[in-house]
Design a protein around this nucleic acid. Structure first.
Lengths: 334, 334
DNA sequence: CAGGCTTTCTACAACGTTGTAAGCAACGTT
DNA sequence: AACGTTGCTTACAACGTTGTAGAAAGCCTG
């Protein structure tokens, strides 16, 4: 029971184009013609066929958001903000879950629904700049650190500064044996590299030696990895009095491992995370963290995309930095 | 630099339709013609325009998933499974976030991208059966409890049984003063009603009186609401020795409030949740919960939709029940 | 060798929409 | 009276694709 412009036109006794004009808010339509058409639209419950409209206009009104995993809270929260920001522009968001796998990300990069989307906001893990080149004209905004001088617009927070501030916060509490969890030496580990650099810089600022035994790798940044890394640190005999985890889920895992080891947080070991996910506000203890302004990240990304779509397709790639701040909570405050 | 069938056809020296046939895997194409066409496709990096294809075929290959909030872990995890199950059918999933607001849900129900999607998997909070009637032919599968005898296919777990089992589990630990958190008397609170019914049934089974003072309402089921409800229960002077929270985020909030009140879990108060979200596996203490088989829910939903799309549009609505089980963890085990 | 089948390919129309150009009144200006 | 302007409406073509119908050529069957 789907109706077309033609059905409405016949019912209202006007041409198809006049109905189209009414639907699109064209000005020069006589009030009583408009009324008749609107009545017919209501009676038939007419709604435009977007595929046809898109075909005609070359625009779909849909943008895609590609993230590694939806059930990683950071991405879920980010997705929420992107959907909200896109709604302000009248766009629908198609959310794609890449799993961080390179193949799947290439599919996303290749344009998902091919011509089905006007633009792409992309938080890649495994993708290279070359893969992105394959986007071939699809306006794209990158989030996160993976491809930081790629061919596309880019939004991120200043990871080095944020990590440096957090480490300095721990030092300010009097801690000196500060561990770091989340090191990654793979090409995908750009965030890890930046955060590690900030950590090292803060140690240097305070004249504390960088001790490699205090730096624990974590191939993925899930809770289980944080717990495993923490256990390993404890087992190795190095006795940290603080841990800076490169994201909140790692930190929540570390909290869990410390609890199992009978250590008190923050008395024995202070713990800090990164991302400010909802969970950290209700954990026991609540989690000190770096709070990226996710709403701002989403808004900037959508606006960059809007700019591209509005015309300046050929402008050079822009790099925007979103604000962040430190959120001290119980895990570092007695 | 987007090319069309016509461009490929010219390059390969064949008709547009022959290229279409190659693209669609039509059988009767001479091998060397096919090769020439494929070469041209590769050279031009041709990809079909889905809007045009959809217009022609009346199908889009996109289904929508509408959930209240993406950053509620249960929905994020569910979304992940739906995306995976849909991928097996070659579908892309458009994820829509309704915010649980009736207006927004109506928009979702009205077909989101209007003609842009082939079907809808919908987890409504605020919607009535009448609103759903407005779907007007769009194949739809409902998740959750809101409209349990509506006009559409429906997948859910047996909430009453699950809640009864969990309450029985608490009784089996020797607890007698078992509180419930998450009561809702609003029309949206169908899940709450079912879970409360299961709770009451288990108490009756064990010959324990139902005490209204032990039942705490929670208008929304976020962590903050769970914490608030728990604080209020404690302040009211009723001294529960166990709490059954109607979902995991409520339970995590309750854990937090108990911690603040200096009560030990599970020694002083046992805590149980519902949903088995990832967070509950790493909380301190880990959270006993009802585990709905989310993967199965997603798979059943997608398959119901597939059935409708394959033809039997007029079949009566089906009600499927997905399995669940109890997952005991530290919050009820010493 | 006529008739029919198969293989390979093509022309055309149609899906539902909107931009363009143009038509037709009614009005005001010279 | 002739002309331009403005307001409203319409016919037509086009967006890129695929289904239908059918043409052309080759092959088999009797």
């Amino acid at each position: 029971m789907r109706h077309r412009l033609k059905d409405v036109a016949e019912r209202a006794g006007v041409s198809v184009k006049t109905v189209s004009n009414v639907v699109n808010g064209y000005l020069h339509v006589k009030p009583d013609t408009r009324a008749r058409v609107e009545e017919a639209i209501a009676e038939l419950n007419y709604r435009p066929n977007l595929s046809a409209r898109n075909l005609r206009k070359g625009r779909t009104g849909v943008i895609a958001l590609a993230v590694p995993e939806l059930d990683i809270p950071y991405f879920a929260e980010l997705a929420r903000h992107v959907v909200a920001a896109a709604a302000d522009h009248g766009w629908t968001v198609l959310i794609d879950q890449t799993g961080g796998r390179r193949e799947q990300e290439r599919v996303a990069a290749a344009g998902i629904g091919d011509h089905m989307i006007d633009g792409l906001i992309f938080s890649p893990l495994a993708l290279t700049a070359d893969d992105l080149a394959a986007l071939d004209g699809l306006p794209t905004v990158l989030l996160g650190e993976r491809v930081d001088h790629g061919p596309a617009d880019h939004v991120a927070i200043d990871n080095v500064t944020a990590a440096r501030e957090m480490t300095a916060h721990l030092i300010g509490l009097g801690r000196r044996r500060i561990a770091a969890i989340g090191d990654q030496r793979t090409p995908e580990g750009a965030s890890a590299r930046l955060r590690l650099a900030g950590y090292a810089a803060a140690l240097a600022d305070a004249g504390i030696d960088y001790d490699e035994r205090l730096v624990a790798p974590a191939p993925v940044w899930h809770r289980a990895d944080g717990a495993a890394a923490m256990r390993q640190l404890l087992a190795s005999g190095v006795r940290p009095d603080a841990v800076f985890c490169f994201n909140d889920t790692l930190a929540l895992g570390a909290l869990r491992a410390l609890h199992e080891a009978g250590l008190k947080v923050p008395d024995d070991v202070a713990v800090a995370g990164f991302d400010d996910i909802e969970d950290g506000r209700f954990s026991v203890p609540t989690l000190t963290t770096v709070s990226p302004d996710k709403e701002q990240i989403a808004r900037l990304a959508v606006e960059l995309l809007a700019g591209r779509l509005a015309g300046d397709r050929e402008a050079p790639p822009r790099e925007l930095t979103a604000p962040h701040h430190l959120t001290p909570r119980e895990s570092t405050h007695p």
